[in-house]
Nucleic acid binder design. Structure first.
Length: 472
DNA sequence: ATGTGC
């Protein structure tokens, strides 16, 4: 894959047939994927062939290989020009995302209570591959209320407060969810997992604010130095996975009828303005709302534990997903166009002044929540005016070794002991599960964030360090 | 990511 260096944090893949637009990779040279083990730059070029794609096929600094689209990919299509939506451009874990809570508590005050807090969080957090959840839903009607209402439904049922919704992307629910497009199988898989963490790279972490880069913005977000925070990273569990599977299959069947041909079967897609496209978007919105409710329920459980253990409240800083396609207005070539923006392993990053932000955040921009790999720092960033990638930023460190490779590299070591030696309390997860998530398997989060900022995608606000982690 | 893999 030929890359042209345009600036220190921007590389171009020149357009050549059948690409409709160029590829653009925001990264330092050191962060570029190694073509020997990762073909994600070929995927960037493949995405550039999709009908209706505008601007470029973008890759964030944490880009790595994914299903069809790269993880860390952004692609926008022009709906009026036959632009498509593709489930592979969202990913299997629909609306997987991050929620950050902040306590009115300093890390020194928490220190003597940390082990007890971690035990209580561990006991209250359903996690791992199987079932077990905060909510046990008994009827399809009740699950449909979750699929339509997202975090808002959880709040209405008493699991949170109205203020929470002002600190959620989309005020807690994507509009136009269509439960009729969700298969019975997806419903069955989801019914017993509402309010559960999952496994893999999902986690619940107690953190402390180690550094503030922009004090006024941090203050507007509700963050200050040494403050204790809780970060939750999880998604739509088996329900989102099943919806992705179902709609990829459906689109594979009808794609030819729309005259669409793609270089990789995993890029199955349909026009946004088509029966198959609308069906997927309705089901995707339902899965997104499931993920939002999932994080709302877990956060509420965590809040109760914090109050009981420390006497302090947890307030929501923000909740934002990094696996979603959204219908958005963007200015392009001087005109406003309605685009379908796919962000897969990429976080929406609205700039200051954006009308979709609540009044209290409009002056400073949207909080962009970037978890590091296990045991490393996480970052809070903010969106900036003039984003070069449809108001999007990175989403995390980005895997560089497969799970299997990660276990092989770490063989002989004890991941739990390694984390505890650095004063990080660990709860849950098997030895293998932890080994798969060790920092050696990921890029350096600080380098990823430097590149994202250097490329003009976002701006640093605060750096958080882990005190304790609950893994699936 | 995922009742882990056609």
């Amino acid at each position: 894959m030929e890359l042209v260096e345009e600036s220190p944090y921007r590389f171009r893949i020149d357009r050549r047939d059948p690409m409709r637009v160029p590829g653009v990779v925001f990264a330092s040279r050191a962060l570029l994927p190694d073509p020997a083990g990762d073909r994600s730059l070929e995927q960037v070029a493949n995405v550039a062939t999709l009908p209706g794609i505008v601007g470029a096929s973008y890759a964030m600094p944490d880009v790595h290989w994914g299903y069809g689209f790269p993880i860390g990919g952004v692609a926008a299509t022009d709906i009026a020009a036959g632009g498509v939506v593709s489930p592979g451009g969202v990913g299997f874990d629909i609306s997987c995302g991050v929620r950050l809570l902040a306590a009115d508590l300093d890390r020194a005050e928490l220190r003597p209570r940390l082990e007890a807090v971690m035990d209580a969080l561990s006991a209250a957090t359903p996690r791992g591959m199987g079932s077990g959840a905060v909510w046990q839903l008994t009827s399809r009607d009740e699950l449909e209320a979750v699929l339509r209402g997202g975090s808002g439904y959880a709040v209405r049922r008493g699991f949170g407060v109205e203020r929470d919704l002002h600190r959620c992307e989309d005020y807690g629910a994507v509009q136009d969810a269509d439960p009729a497009q969700v298969s019975d199988r997806a419903i069955e898989r989801g019914a017993h997992q509402v309010g559960s963490l999952g496994s893999g790279n999902h986690f619940l972490e107690v953190q402390a604010v180690e550094q503030v880069y922009d004090e006024p913005v941090a203050e507007a977000f509700g963050l200050r130095p040494d403050q204790v925070c809780v970060m939750i990273h999880c998604g739509s569990r088996g329900l989102g996975h099943q919806i992705c599977t179902d709609h990829v299959r459906a689109m594979e069947k009808v794609m030819g009828r729309y005259g669409i041909h793609v270089p990789d079967r995993q890029l199955a897609c349909a026009p946004v303005d088509s029966a198959a496209g609308r069906a997927y978007l309705g089901a995707m919105a339902a899965a997104a709302n499931y993920a939002r409710a999932n994080r709302q329920l877990l956060a509420h459980a965590v809040g109760r534990i914090f109050e009981r253990q420390t006497g302090r409240r947890l307030d929501l800083v923000y909740d934002v997903s990094h696996n979603l396609a959204k219908i958005e207005d963007h200015t392009l070539d001087g005109g406003v166009r309605l685009l379908c923006v796919h962000r897969k392993g990429a976080t929406r990053a609205l700039p200051p002044g954006h009308p979709d932000l609540p009044a209290e955040l409009r002056g400073v921009g949207q909080p962009v929540l970037i978890p590091g790999s296990m045991g490393t720092a996480s970052y809070v960033l903010t969106g900036v005016v003039g984003s070069p990638a449809f108001a999007s930023a990175c989403h995390g460190a980005g895997r560089v070794r497969s799970r299997k490779q990660a276990v092989a590299v770490g063989r002989g070591g004890d991941p739990r002991a390694q984390l505890q030696a650095r004063d990080i309390a660990v709860r849950g997860a098997s030895r293998r599960g932890l080994a798969e998530e060790m920092p050696a398997a990921y890029k350096d989060i600080s380098a990823v964030v430097e590149a994202a900022e250097g490329a003009g995608l976002c701006r640093k606000v605060a750096r958080l360090v882990p005190l304790g982690v609950v893994k699936g």
